[in-house]
Simulated scan of single mutants.
Amino acid sequence: MENNHNEGMSGFLAIEQKLAVSTRRHRGFPRDQAMLVRMVKLLHKLFSDHANLLLRTHDLTHPEYNVLMMLDGSEGGLSPSQLGEATSEKSSNTTRLIDQLLAKGLLTRSPSDEDRRMLVVQLTDEGEALIRQVVPAVTLQLQGFFAGITDAQRGQLEHLLKKVLRGVESQG
């Protein structure tokens, strides 16, 4: 893990090699599309690994940070199911993350004022303070991830990834 740049590139090279073999073995195999999917997966792993290293100093994991940030971006909190949807976590993992963050004193979970059958998860003052403490370092990390591309290229990448998301979601 000490040399993540090389780990990412060696992972990329391994993907290229294996896809070349699959392309030779299977006529019509969509190598370009498969490469993009594998690259997105590798990027996700590397983003998460780097984030976990950074967040470890704050006694947080990347999934916990994502929960805190989704709550930070909400007005009045979220239900556990809304939180799971916002963080792209499975229901069981969302419950586990909420429990971990409750134990750390960073969240509260209470009945909704509108519907007492529904629970609402919100940040505590300690959770809000931790976010204020972590965001500057995360901001620098994110800027570093994308330092090699221009604002226009980032906009184009976002536009293209949204199109891919729509295509994946339309597959049902």
Rank of each mutant, 00 (worst) to 15 (best):
E126T: 14
E16H: 09
L107D: 02
M35S: 10
M69H: 09
L36K: 12
R24Y: 14
S22A: 12
V67I: 10
V120L: 07
E114T: 12
S91Q: 15
R117F: 08
R25F: 10
L130N: 03
M70N: 12
R25H: 12
P63K: 00
S92R: 11
H62P: 01
T150V: 08
T94Q: 02
P30D: 13
Q141K: 09
M69F: 09
D113N: 06
L46A: 12
V121R: 00
G77E: 03
Q82P: 04
L46C: 11
F145G: 00
L142P: 00
G127S: 08
V21A: 07
P136I: 02
L123I: 10
L55E: 04
L60I: 09
G105H: 03
E114C: 04
A51S: 12
M69Y: 10
E75D: 11
L123A: 03
Q143E: 09
A137K: 13
L130V: 05
T94H: 01
R109L: 08
L36T: 13
M70Y: 04
L123M: 05
A20Y: 02
E128N: 07
L43W: 06
F29A: 05
L60Y: 03
T95R: 06
L130H: 05
D125V: 14
A34E: 12
G28K: 05
Q143C: 03
P80A: 07
D32Y: 06
E64K: 01
K90H: 10
N93Y: 08
